[in-house]
Structure formats: structure tokens, C-alpha cells
Design a binder for these strands. Structure first.
Lengths: 150, 150
DNA sequence: GAAATTATGTTGTATTTGCAACAAAGTATA
DNA sequence: TATACTTTGTTGCAAATACAACATAATTTC
């Protein structure tokens, strides 16, 4: 059995570790950059959806978002029609930080993909999207308390 | 820019989350399965190398390993020639747990790769290995306190 | 439209994670 | 061989993570 998922785990941990170290000087503590990026790219998103998107526990997302707001990177606005939800938007400060993050992430992408041809990158991306879609189904299933049989 | 790394992050978090939930009933707390697998497959490895392999902080590995030993999944043996290092070996209990973990991981692999042809899996694996090698260089560089310029 | 269910959000608590700082063994250098 | 440097391991501390349990709004079902 090809250990595809093991490779993915190694890559993900290495990159996350690098990013966390590199963003420390911008007051962005561990993990926060991931949320901020998504909020900048999907302004108005609510935290429940954000957690699903990122694939992280609801409560973890809640606290990360609270801290992002506390530190002035984002704003939580009440929705007009739905009293339950709070929509998330970047502040100017958050949007500025997003620019660094993009630069760093783009660089990491470049390093990670160096030596691959454009078409290899394309193939990899498409394959990964399929893997991700397969995986997120099971994640949601298990997260809701269901049991997988194997 | 293709967000290859973002896909990788999502997949890794989802899978890790699933595994952690599924291994809870075997007294394997969060993260531990990764170490145990590697120790079973590389008996005699030392914790410093294990941390490098997994791409996790040295001190995190140290504590995860300590707990694995405390719970009887592994054993730490002194080396004859080198007083500094401790070699790690699975116990019977650890090796048994490894069997579950394999079954679970294989299942996750199968789910994740469902719909991909054998040759697509092969291509994906080879590409990911290259990405991983690229990435681990930078990880080691940054982990040692060096600064990347971008 | 009342009751049951689902969606969204929060807080309490235990555990994991990782940086900083240290210690000691081993290795390289002069 | 003495000194500096590197490797390996540990502990203190602060922060992130996630499960459980709860609260309340929204939606579905009867």
C-alpha cells in the first residue's frame, strides 16, 4: 500500500510549523493565519462554515476567531435576518496581515513545488482535490459521531 | 497560483481528526498513533530522529513518547555505546495497537484514494514525495532558527 | 402552530503543542 | 588534550486544541 497519506501528513506539519514560526513576528499566534486567509477570501463567512472549510473542531475555530477579533484582525458583525449567526470580516489590519501571509504561502508553494513542471503541478492539484473531497465526507461523518466500519 | 498546499492542509487535518477520534477507544490519545507506527516500523529509532521524520517539535515528540512508554505501548532502552540516546521499541501491546492503526490507516487510504486509478495513485505518490522532500529542507532550515527571504 | 430536530455559538476542563532555557554526552577543532 | 560546537534529552510555561455539555435561534415535522 502506497503511503500517500503519510506523505501528506509530513508535508502539512512541516509547512504549518514553518508558517507559525514565520508569522509570530506579526502577532499572529499558532494556527490563526489559516482562519484569517479564509475570512479575507470569503468575507461574511460564519464560524461554523469556516471550521468545516478548514477541517477543525467548531470550538477550536470559535476560540481562534475570538482571538483574531480581540487582536483587531477581524470584525464580527450581526446578521440582519438571522440573530444566531455572526458574519466575519477582515479589518484593515487583518487585510494587511493577509498580504504577508499570501507572500509567505506563495513562497512556500514555490519551494514545495520546485522541480515540478507546470503540468505536474496541475495534475497534482487535481488529484489532491479529489482526495480532499473523498476525505471530507468521512471527516464529517465521523465528526458527527458516526462509526466507520473497516 | 494553484493552492496545492491548502488542499494538503485540509486533507491532513481531516484525516488526523478522524484517526484521533477512532483511536480514542484504544487509550491512544491525540497524536500518539503517528509515533507508534513509526516506532513499530523502525524499531530502535531515537526520539530526535522520530521528531524529524514526523516533522514535529523535539519537545512535543519527547512528551508523546514519554506517554507512550508510560502507557506500556513502547519501551525505551539504553544504548550500549552511547549514554545519551535511548532507543525505542514497541511492546507487545504496542505492536497489537499497531495492527489496528494499520487497518484504520489503510481504510482511510482507500477512502481517500477512491475513484483514482492505480496509475493515478502512483503518480500522486511520486509527486507528493518530491513535494515532501522540497518542504522538509525548508522546515529544517527554519526550525534551526534561520530566516527565509521572500 | 406546537413539538422535535438541527444549526450555531459558548464555556469548562483536560490534554497536547511548542518555544525557551537548560543539562549532559558526544564530536570536532585548535 | 583542552575548548568549542553539536546532538540528544528534559522541564517550565503559555497557548492551542478538542471533547462534553450547555444555550438559544432557526427549521422541520407532525
Amino acid at each position: 500500500m502506497k503511503e500517500v497519506l503519510r506523505e501528506i501528513g509530513m508535508i502539512a506539519r512541516a509547512l504549518d510549523s514553518i508558517s507559525n514560526i514565520e508569522f509570530k513576528e506579526y502577532e499572529l499566534s499558532k494556527g490563526q493565519y489559516i482562519y484569517l486567509v479564509r475570512i479575507c477570501e470569503t468575507p461574511g463567512i460564519i464560524q461554523e462554515k469556516l471550521a468545516e472549510m478548514i477541517k477543525v473542531d467548531r470550538t477550536t475555530a470559535a476560540r481562534a476567531i475570538k482571538k483574531l477579533a480581540l487582536n483587531g484582525f477581524i470584525e464580527r458583525r450581526d446578521d440582519e435576518n438571522n440573530k444566531k449567526i455572526k458574519r466575519l470580516f477582515p479589518t484593515d489590519k487583518g487585510y494587511n496581515a493577509y498580504q504577508f501571509i499570501r507572500r509567505e504561502n506563495d513562497f512556500s508553494n514555490k519551494v514545495a513545488l520546485s522541480g515540478l513542471t507546470e503540468s505536474e503541478v496541475d495534475i497534482l492539484f487535481k488529484l489532491l482535490q479529489r482526495v480532499r473531497k473523498n476525505t471530507e465526507k468521512d471527516w464529517e461523518y465521523v465528526k458527527k459521531g458516526n462509526k466507520r466500519i473497516y
